[in-house]
Design a protein around this nucleic acid. Sequence first.
DNA 1: CTGTGTGCAAAACGTTTGCATGCCT
DNA 2: AGGCATGCAAACGTTTTGCACACAG
Lengths: 146, 146
Amino acid sequence: MRKIEELVNLFKSRELKITPQRLGIFKILEGNTSHPSAENIFHEIRHIYPMISFTTVYKTLEVLESLGEILKITIDGTRKYYDPNTTPHHHTICSRCNMIADVNEEFDMPRLPGEILDKFTPSNYHISFYGNCRECFGEVKDVSTI
Amino acid sequence: MRKIEELVNLFKSRELKITPQRLGIFKILEGNTSHPSAENIFHEIRHIYPMISFTTVYKTLEVLESLGEILKITIDGTRKYYDPNTTPHHHTICSRCNMIADVNEEFDMPRLPGEILDKFTPSNYHISFYGNCRECFGEVKDVSTI
DNA sequence: CTGTGTGCAAAACGTTTGCATGCCT
DNA sequence: AGGCATGCAAACGTTTTGCACACAG
């Protein structure tokens, strides 16, 4: 996602309106690496702009996504997350606290076997690294009993 | 997921009952590489066992998952898919028809940069290869206009 | 016979949509 | 002044839950 100033210009050039609600959402997303859900964004913006509705949050996220300014990402099946970092990158996911962090390192795309390449042409790829973040590491012995 | 015969023994040893509904679900899942959703399974089993309910499908899948016999996988945020192949593997996903196929090849886990390893200990990883399957390849020129 | 499994209906959950009103430009 | 944005409420699709009845063990 570009800087707020540029984003405002982009909106104006597309005849999209700048409202306090939208500006608040822009501010929350700018530089945000926490992969917030719509609900996270909604609760955060309520601190600043208490009368905002869920609908507006969703609709603004939809506009930003359609402009290619944010990505909707799927990690677990329970909800969608939004990421203002639109350059391709990978993620680490803590299996205990579900924290998602970015991996901006670029890796060579692993080479698919020939039988698959006969039937499928990959254009990009995404790696999810599962494991434990430092806070959760060491407290995980009991996971196997779940 | 193990073979149906072994699965039946496993259920019996855990005092879990074998019902025609459960057996039907086992049969649909055995060797299934199509990553069916609960709805897919429900519709397929209805051909054989027309009075089965969605509830039973979900509850049986839950039991199988808790036994570690199937995995619940997340690809898009709209629904969950079930995979009887519980050995770690990767997937190809066609961006046009959403078909998911298995990649059983093993790759070396890409090495995370030191700054990340300080904060996160990976234990396994999953790669999603996005692209187009043969059927869809060549019909994708118009995607950029969406 | 006992208790787990089934199936209905309803609730829950995140997300989307229709529509009247509000307000940015 | 015009039209896009907002916000409410209701609809939506998927999954979960409560409860009475059925049936596998």
